[in-house]
Structure formats: structure tokens, C-alpha cells
Design a binder for these strands. Structure first.
Lengths: 345, 345
DNA sequence: CTGAAAGCGCTTACAG
DNA sequence: CTGAAAGCGCTTACAG
């Protein structure tokens, strides 16, 4: 590798001290504008690149943020091709990476292995002091969260919260979203509406269920026991769906992927969607677009979420005491073709 | 943030010098085993975390690798929801991140904006000396590659090569893959086989086409001009497909996503797939799984590619002169439901 | 407006 | 086997 140009080299060329170079290049006070400009130009010409490492050592900040994603939300290792809706988390990561970049931070992905999660082993990024803070993407074990909090690092949780710890989190408003889409079904004359999702799997699913349930309650609609249909086991693996004895006229699914499965299975049973039975999803993911019919769904406002998470983290980076609490970002209803629009009778 | 424990603190506690601590913790020679173990335990107990930054400053290596992905292969900014097959690149990135982690490196994603690519603006990661080398994921502009090479950084290209520069690259063997799958069609009695893809868009598509063409040549099959069907413009945006006057009995599509589109359009025209017309894809992506019928395709050996790319980069990190040239990793045929299996007549 | 000195937390080469 | 000294490339606080 060719020898790097340092501030001292520039200083020598201009016959000044490296202190002056540092001030000029960092746009600090104490250098005449004329000299400053000469130095900036000269540095460019000499191919000077700031040594961020040396800067980090002095300022005790790396300008790196660790983004922790549990392995099960990735498409690697034993979860390879397990067909989870991985793209949501990777889209979030991409947006986070971009947003941090705008603020001169870099995002380092840390895929949290199931083993490390179970044994509460903190990321090497932490142990090596390679980052200034963390963003946690998706749900992680409670014990792991506690361990993370013990580090007293600035941490913001994205798309996950749990009630036991007083933490800062950004989630999409699952409750409001599912409430909204269930209302939409009811406004289209549906009364027999089932929910598909394991209520004990993630807090997201639970909240979506509660939004759905609130809508039912408000409209004084009964919820038969077998109208809650589990879709996955505790590990997040999809299981066979058990349909109710009396078929509902609509299914509220906790995500588009499951909605897609439901639609296929209904079609196999000889039902037409949406003519006989309506189905709605959540996420506005590729499954919504690819399904035939396309799936009416709720789209998460990813940009707003990421914008908020970065804003929050920066504040905590400045002042570790800063607390925001739980922030829920509202999504929007995206009407496609999987709901029969009827007037109420 | 709580005050960090330094080597000096540990040294004070044991009444030795920090040099000894450094040696013990880095498993270097010159410390008795007994003392070494005591120090390791003590460090743990005191919650010592190595300051990777200080280490970097001395050793002049950051143990960070920049992973450059052109914006158009991401799901961000103006490419948001443009439905590119983004997941392939993000899967690669995840695998790269994991593999580098095993080697104690971190992967920092750099999304290369179209503007920076056009104006050959190098990543801030480079300008700030935050990484030791780069992995470039997917095709980037020739001028940008030249600019990157000028840095004399260790760089490996993944899933992209171009002939003009003598560079180290790992690609999937597009040529062999498409040759294989076209052979498969021919063995199933197809003679009228069209290719779908813009030959001038990426080298991957071009190579896939050539594999297809080699198979035709070997079997002495003519290639009518209108059997090459462009699927996208130069920016990678999908365009309307123009079908040949005389319908072929099979389509070789350059990727599963396009194969999925072709299947849908054929079905709309009243053809049955695979009974009337067979269609094959490439990538074994979600489009292959979700299509009805599922799409016979070629699966890239991502693990082998990533393993190779990391191995190569590490070698170049050790010795910048190390050259591997272009390495192509073979994929495998994945037979699904979109090809009618017939015996040759 | 400019710079000498100290220091961030390590590692390396050398002396004992 | 152990450690004093120098130094990596910056920034900060202070003196002029």
C-alpha cells in the first residue's frame, strides 16, 4: 500500500504546524480563510485522506453503529431459504445504512447467531470497541436485551419492543394498522372475520391481533375461539393451518406471506378470492404483489421509521441520558384485489 | 459512558507493565503461562474490552471491509420497490458479513449512489481510511472500477467482471449454468428455444446468453433473430416483451423474475405452461418458488462464492500483489414444474 | 491567527 | 521472562 499522506506532510509543505492543518481541514476557528483554502486545496492535491482511526482514538468515537439482526431474520446459516420474510429487515438495514451515512456514520451489520442470543454473548463489535452504539432490528430474547442494556451503550430498538424494560424503540403501529384494515373489512359488510397468526410468537403479531380485536369489539362482533388460527411455532416455522368449522367470510392475516398461503389454500378448497372469501395481509411485501389476486394490505412507513431511529440514536450519542420511550409509526392501507368491496346490507 | 478499562489499569492491578498485558492478551511470546492466565482472567473480571481503534492506529489496519453495492441493486431511494431482484445481493452481503466475521473482520455496507458512480466519487469509507479493502457486489460502471483500482486497495469483485481490467473476481458460472439448462430443454425434445434478456445490459446476462447459444450450436439449432427478446433497458428497467412471430416451444429467461413474467403473459395469451410452452429461469429465487407452475432454474452456489471471495481478499490483505484472476463458481440445475419432460422424438 | 506540548490506548523493537 | 521508550496520526487546551 502506498505511504499515506499525513497532516504533518501537508504542514511541511506549507511551512506551518499540523495543528493549523487540523483546524483548517476540520473547519475550526483559528486559521485565516486564505490559509484555510490553500490548505484544503493542497490536501486534495496531495491526495490526503483523513485518518479516521487516529481521530477516533482522540475523540473516543468510531462513527460506526452496529446493527444487530437475529439470524432467524436473515437468509443465512440454518435459516437459509427458510422463506421467512427476510427482505423487510434487509430493506430496513439498507435504509438505516443510508440514513447513517448521511450523518457520517457507518452501519456495521452484526448477525446475531441463535447460540450467542441464547448464551447472551455480546457482539464482538462491542467487545472490540468498534462501534459507538447499536440499533437492534427485530425481536431478540429478553435476556439478551437486558445484557445489551447493561453495556450502557446508546441503543435503539427497531420494529421490536417489550414491556419489561424501559427502552427506546421505534415500531410500526401494528395495532393501528390491523385495526384500520379490519375496519375496512367490516365496512365492506364482513362480520365473520378470522385472524391468522400465532399470538405468542412476537409482539408485532400480538399487537396486530389486538388491533383486529378492537375493531371487532367496537362493532360488537363475536370472536369464536376457532377464528384465531396459529400460523407458526415458537421458532417461527410455519405450521399447517387449521381452518374453522364454519368458514368466515374474511381472513385477517398477520403478514402478506401467510395471506398468500391462505389464498392458495382457499383456492385449492374451491373458494374464490375475493368473491367467496376476502383475505388481507400486512407489510405490502412482495407476497402481496405476486399473489393472484394481489393482496390488500398495510404498508409500513419504513422511511419514517428509519428517519426516527437515526434521529433518536444521534441524540443518545450526544447525551446518553436522552430517552424517547416507545414510538409507533403509523402505516397506510393499500387497497388491492383480495377484498370484495360490497355495501353493507 | 462509563470509563473504559485500559491495559494500564490491568497492569497497575497486577503490578506489571502494560507491555506484559498486551503480550498476554494477544497471546504473544514473552509472558509466563501462569502470569498470562492470571492476566486474561483479571481482564475479564475487570470488564476489559480491547480498544480496537488504538490497535488499528498502531497496526494500520481497521479490520473493516467495505462492501460496495450499487444503489440499483438495493431497495432504497429511487429504486425503492422497483422490484429488482434485490434479495440476491442482500443474501450475498449477509453471507459475506458472516464469513468476514469468522475472520474477525467487519463488513460495512456502502450503497453506491448512481450520482457517485457516474462522477467516480469514491466511498467515504475510503476517504476516511475506515476500511482495509473492498468487495464490490454486482456490476458497476467501468470508469468507477478504474477509479477504485487506482486506490491500490485490495479489492475483489463479486458477481461481476469486465474484460478490460485485470482484476480479481468471483462470479457464478453463468455460461455453464445457462448451457446446462438449455441442454436440459433440448434433451426434453425442444428445438425452438428463445432467449429472454437484454444482451447489452450486464455481463451476467451476456454470459448466460452465450451458454444458451453454445448449447444451440452444439445441437445445430438455428437461432432466429426474433428469438432474442430484450427484457430491460440500459438502466435495468423492465420493458414490454416482444414475442416472436412464430412462438417457440421453450423460453430460456435470464432470471426467475423475468421467467415469472413470461409465464404470466403466456398464460394470459391462453398457453399452458409447461404443457404448451416450457419456461426456465435462473437464480432459484423467490420468483421461482412463487410462480405457478414453479420455475425450473439454476441455483448459484452462493456459499462457495462467498467463501472464495473472503479467502481471496484475505490473501490480498496479506500481500497486495496476490492475484487470482477471474474465478467462476458452478451452479446446479434445479428441476421444478415449468418444463414438460418429454422424450426426444 | 498560529503552534508547542500532551495525550488518546495500544504495539513494536530493543535492552536487560 | 519483563519493561522503558518511542510512535501510530490525530485533537485539545493553552500560551503567545
Amino acid at each position: 500500500m502506498k505511504q499515506n499522506v499525513t497532516m504533518q506532510d501537508i504542514a511541511d509543505r506549507f511551512g506551518v504546524s499540523k495543528v493549523t492543518i487540523s483546524k483548517a481541514l476540520n473547519d475550526k476557528e483559528g486559521v485565516s480563510n486564505e490559509l484555510k483554502n490553500k490548505i484544503i486545496l493542497g490536501a486534495e492535491e496531495m491526495g490526503y485522506r483523513m485518518n479516521a482511526i487516529a481521530q477516533s482514538l482522540k475523540t473516543n468515537s468510531t462513527f460506526n453503529i452496529g446493527v444487530i439482526v437475529p439470524e432467524q431474520f436473515t437468509n443465512t446459516g440454518k435459516y437459509k431459504n427458510s422463506n421467512e420474510n427476510v427482505s423487510f429487515y434487509m430493506d430496513l438495514y439498507q435504509e438505516v445504512s443510508k440514513a447513517l451515512y448521511e450523518e457520517n456514520y457507518s452501519a456495521i451489520l452484526h448477525i446475531l447467531s441463535t447460540e450467542d442470543e441464547e448464551e447472551s454473548i455480546l457482539p464482538k463489535l462491542y467487545r472490540d470497541n468498534k462501534v459507538d452504539g447499536f440499533i437492534v432490528l427485530g425481536q431478540v430474547a429478553h435476556s439478551y436485551v437486558e445484557k445489551l442494556q447493561d453495556t450502557e451503550f446508546p441503543i435503539v430498538y427497531l420494529d421490536f419492543y417489550d414491556e419489561y424494560l424501559d427502552r427506546d424503540s421505534i415500531t410500526s403501529d401494528n395495532f393501528a394498522g390491523c385495526y384500520m384494515i379490519t375496519n375496512y373489512l367490516i365496512h365492506n359488510a364482513h362480520r365473520d372475520i378470522a385472524f391468522v397468526g400465532n399470538l405468542f410468537s412476537t409482539s408485532s403479531i400480538q399487537d396486530r391481533f389486538l388491533g383486529y380485536y378492537k375493531s371487532l369489539l367496537e362493532h360488537k362482533i363475536q370472536l369464536p375461539e376457532d377464528y384465531i388460527i396459529s400460523d407458526r411455532d415458537e421458532k417461527g416455522r410455519y405450521i399447517e393451518l387449521v381452518y374453522p368449522k364454519k368458514m368466515p367470510t374474511a381472513f385477517v392475516c398477520n403478514c402478506d406471506q401467510v395471506a398468500n398461503i391462505v389464498i392458495r389454500e382457499l383456492q385449492q378448497k374451491g373458494y374464490c378470492v375475493p368473491e367467496d372469501i376476502s383475505v388481507v395481509g400486512f407489510d405490502n411485501s412482495i407476497y402481496s404483489a405476486m399473489s393472484i389476486p394481489t393482496i390488500t394490505t398495510v404498508e409500513v412507513d419504513m422511511t419514517a421509521m428509519v428517519c426516527e431511529v437515526v434521529r433518536l440514536l444521534l441524540k443518545k450519542l450526544e447525551n446518553i441520558e436522552y430517552k424517547s420511550g416507545k414510538i409507533a409509526i403509523k402505516g397506510k392501507l393499500v387497497i388491492k384485489d383480495s377484498v370484495a368491496e360490497k355495501k353493507k346490507s
